[in-house]
Design a protein around this nucleic acid. Structure first.
Lengths: 157, 157
DNA sequence: CCCGAATGGTTGACGTATCAACTAACGTCG
DNA sequence: CGACGTTAGTTGATACGTCAACCATTCGGG
């Protein structure tokens, strides 16, 4: 702890005082939750979740190549061991194809299927619309600023 | 869509071009995930999850009064029907007391117990430390700015 | 006073996160 | 080549988010 930081009480809080660390964290969490929910709502009618969508996009990025399971996990927003089950469902739905690596048989190579690509193609526009709508209140400078501040939080921590 | 927005390709992308809507959304989501994980890690040794912690803080805010179940849900970052089960576990652990409302018997009034208050008291410092650490790279003006930008995203959406 | 709509909550089903334990396949060293 | 450590991945347990169906209570009319 950095000692007696003082914090004299403000008797009638000014509209926009410097927010406490916790308030900043809460703002980030609340905003993320809102975004997540909107994406989920846009995806729901198509029968996939935002995590599944995320995985499919990662695999599309590698198409026509493939990626080992854990590499997919490492590229997602939230990490690892859930990836197996995520891929299980995507494979069951026919959007992903998996097979043991030939070179190194520990690896499981994951590849998006044609059906997966087709699905993504239908999803791109709606999702982009959601994201665009979310930041429509921000001008270019504000977007840059927001992204930079968030980077500082992630890296400076 | 807003037509031919152009987007001439940038042959060697400048370090900090205006990010696309999706990049902004991703930055928010990634940052939130990082924060969530750190809080969870700080809470884990004490045997409660971040959602449970969240509920306890809300109930502490109402102490020594109580709140109906759905009111607790409404104040959380993520909403509703999970609240019942969350409260089930907290009650089982002895941190929350519930009873049917006397006035309106549909309501279930939830109140934090002494044990709950004691637990929170132990948790406050570590969690505050996590949050403080997270934003330590931001100056006062930057915190204000970040919070404001996030508000714009939430409200302007 | 009883019907039916509205309100407050709970429950079931499914997807997922997280941790820990476990299997399988390399690789290396002796 | 066989023991051992490492790496890739799977699986089981517990907690949570979300949706939809459901029960109980209250309330407004007739």
């Amino acid at each position: 702890m950095s000692g007696t930081k003082g914090k004299r009480m403000r008797l009638h809080a000014p509209a926009s005082a410097t927010p406490k660390a916790q308030d900043v964290a809460t703002a980030v969490l609340r905003t993320a939750d809102l975004l997540r929910r909107r994406v989920a709502a846009a995806l729901a009618p198509h029968g996939i979740t935002s995590q599944q969508y995320n995985v499919l996009r990662i695999l599309r990025g590698a198409h026509p190549g493939s990626l080992p399971t854990l590499e997919v996990g490492a590229r997602m927003i939230e990490q690892t061991p859930g990836v197996t089950r995520l891929l299980d469902r995507l494979e069951a739905m026919g959007f992903v194809h998996r097979e043991r690596g030939v070179d190194d048989r520990r690896l499981v190579e994951c590849q998006i299927t044609e059906a997966g690509l087709t699905l993504l193609a239908r999803l791109d526009a709606p999702i982009d619309e959601v994201n665009r709508h979310a930041v429509h209140a921000l001008g270019p400078a504000e977007r840059r600023s927001l992204v930079r501040l968030l980077e500082l939080v992630r890296e400076g921590g």
